[in-house]
């Protein structure tokens, strides 16, 4: 079993009003030192077949999981994960 963790984040310069709202809430809770809160996505999946996992994940990110106009992506691949 191969486990893949994908992180999708907004590109620098892309407005993140949700992050701003969370930042405001954290400040209200007394966390005054918090800055630059950005919200992203975390997607996890498993592969039963170890063939060409990296290539497939790369394509998935480009074709669907991330929008290259506004988002960056990164991923980690863990081999031999037992569930």
């Amino acid at each position: 079993m191969i486990k893949v963790n994908i992180h999708i984040t907004l590109k620098e310069g892309v407005l993140d009003p949700q992050g701003k709202a969370i930042e405001g809430s954290l400040n209200t809770l007394g966390y005054q030192g918090v800055e630059d809160v950005r919200v992203g996505k975390f997607i996890e999946m498993t592969f039963s077949d170890s063939e060409q996992v990296t290539e497939q994940v790369e394509q998935m990110c480009q074709k669907l999981l991330a929008n290259p106009v506004i988002e960056n992506y990164s991923y980690t691949i863990e081999e031999g994960v037992v569930q």
Binding site: L15, P17, A21, N67, V69
Partner: peptide, 17 residues
């Protein structure tokens, strides 16, 4: 249309959420 690449750009959350 934007997600299909038929038009350029993207749409984000409204500025005031």
């Amino acid at each position: 249309l934007l997600e299909s690449g038929l038009l350029p750009g993207a749409l984000l959350r409204n500025k005031a959420l």
